[in-house]
Design a protein around this nucleic acid. Sequence first.
DNA 1: GCGAATACGTTTCATCATGCAAAGAACTGG
DNA 2: CCAGTTCTTTGCATGATGAAACGTATTCGC
Lengths: 388, 388
Amino acid sequence: MTQLEDRGQVWPALDGLARDLSLEVLIRGPLPRRELAAKLGVSAATLTRTVAPLLESGVLIELEEPLAGGPGRPARLVDVPASTHRFVGVKLTGECLHGVLTDLRADIVASRTVDLDGLEPARVAAAIGRLVADLDAGQDATAVGISFGGVSHDGRTVARAPFLEWHDVALARLVEQATGLPVILENDLVALAGAEHWFGEGRTVPSFAVLTIGIGVGYGLVVHDRVVTHRDVGIGLVGHYPLDPQGPRCPNGHHGCAEAMLTTTGISSQVSVAHRRPVGYGEALELARGGDPVALEVVTAAGHALGRLIAAVANLAMPDRIFLSGEGIELARVAWGAVWEGVQRDRDPAASPVDVVVQPYDSDQWARGAAAIAIQHHVLGSAVTAGS
Amino acid sequence: MTQLEDRGQVWPALDGLARDLSLEVLIRGPLPRRELAAKLGVSAATLTRTVAPLLESGVLIELEEPLAGGPGRPARLVDVPASTHRFVGVKLTGECLHGVLTDLRADIVASRTVDLDGLEPARVAAAIGRLVADLDAGQDATAVGISFGGVSHDGRTVARAPFLEWHDVALARLVEQATGLPVILENDLVALAGAEHWFGEGRTVPSFAVLTIGIGVGYGLVVHDRVVTHRDVGIGLVGHYPLDPQGPRCPNGHHGCAEAMLTTTGISSQVSVAHRRPVGYGEALELARGGDPVALEVVTAAGHALGRLIAAVANLAMPDRIFLSGEGIELARVAWGAVWEGVQRDRDPAASPVDVVVQPYDSDQWARGAAAIAIQHHVLGSAVTAGS
DNA sequence: GCGAATACGTTTCATCATGCAAAGAACTGG
DNA sequence: CCAGTTCTTTGCATGATGAAACGTATTCGC
């Protein structure tokens, strides 16, 4: 146990090259020394000298299996001991907590969901405390990350969270008192983008956007290998985005904005109204798949709107790739034709095709994002937004 | 002359710290050593050691006037000898060449405009050669930058330039043969953003967007202190942007896209049609100012559309600031109320206000951007897109 | 005026990180 | 088993760096 704690202390203390090196290994997976030297722009000698004490202290390990190749001495792979670290990620919504226990590479080890019995900060903090204790039964977690649909400027205080009706709640402190672990807060989309950036498919491109559809519409952005954190990230930047002048109205009275067209509730309520009975989101998509005219119309319009949103992101943020995710993203698969048509419509024909990746949605993804933020914060010391 | 050439050779040869230091001085203006040391994160000792040879070789100079302050030895300001360098910037359009001669800080020393007598590459290159010779009468320019509405991937070849109907024209080589100077090409909006970034108001913010309206609608972006250069930068990313479903149609048949609503030709032709006589852009704005109902309607709709475009940029690219420029930007002043209304409409009320700066348009701005690219290329050796 | 006080800039010196080059190590293929 | 090849380590010289002491140019108080 003390050894684990010692190892926990090691990362933040790393200096320039040792830090960059460990980060590279963490993010780009096991690598031979030679390749690491090339990536970091240092000589092989320096690399050996830097790696040696890190192996000694346990920050890095050397894999048993050498990298088989042609002639010559086979390369030994340097890696992080990912599976000996534990981090907790918690996604906080207005109804429940979704938590995951992960290793150092944000691979999920365990997962739990619990309902909230009240939204007062103290109650929520206590519930998070119990969730963390439940997930981290071995008590060897290094840090806790919490993500939510709202704004935190410092990672310690919830500056704003509309669906919780919180303002300036020092949630990190409360949860630290409950768990005894370091806690870091972050907007849910920044967290998801962070996870994608370090531990997902976003590793391979220097810039990408994440669009999520579900109860809300979310947007996160990575440019020049760094997450874009604007003071407004996390409040509905894309929610009011106008997509279809003939579309349904949102609660604010806008016609055809992203909130009204794309959210699960927006779609299911449109279908429900037409069918004069409550139709859930899944059923609405099923009806559309089956050819139900009303559902098809609603879903096609939504797909079209999603496509135009994608085009807008591609045109204005110019990412190399756009990831689609969120609990309602099945829409993109059901209405892919309409999505692509929407993209084409608002995109210059001469422009290169937009690289859109629909991610298989998994209810752990949001919490994994929170864990990724905890990992980043632990590994980088403080600068969460810094890139690879 | 040889001394100038020597100095020209010095910049690219600078190594790490000397290069960062000189760049900081170039971009942030004259600075005392102490402040430079703090900004670069090195000790005062290292700073002195680094500056000394740069002063010796003439890359940097020390201002005569010390910085008056409180008690203590007054600081001496380190600066670049901006006025002893010359760069040429040329903006290439389908009708004419606009050229400026600048110093090392992109301050304009001279300016010329000439009409093109043909669009064949050889003719254009010859015309640019004459323009450069005319501007750079002292023959002491270091490099030439050329910007245009199109795409160049390598700074040497015009990959695409719709209004010139060029494909893969090795313009840089042609102009180098004509002038004997190093030549670099860049998209006009990347160039304008680059000028704003290094030598304009963009210096003070790590991210900003540039929106231009004129014959076309242009968009450039700087994030994390680096210009965003996407393979599609320069082709009409925002031109097809839908802004008003009831708006006029563009040549491609889109209703109310940015091209149709915001360009000078779009506005003047709408007013012309209504008045059944040709009305120029300036006159259209004057009519609107004077209360002419038709012009007012067109201009108000355009202002509203511009506001929505600004909101879209603010929402999706999340810049700290948005600069408005271009030969038609007077629109923003005439219809500022409508612009702001458009911004508000598509912006979450809880979001922070968008920081919009309308720049006084000056016909030299485009060419100055080209000069800025030449300066950046010269100073950085090759990586044009690298930031400060 | 004249000595504190103060802040900026330079030099000295010891340290440390780094690269080069040579040696060592671990494999493949004849 | 030896040559060939590639990865890794070690020895050595070099050069960059920071701490601290020193030097310098000003203001302030008397």
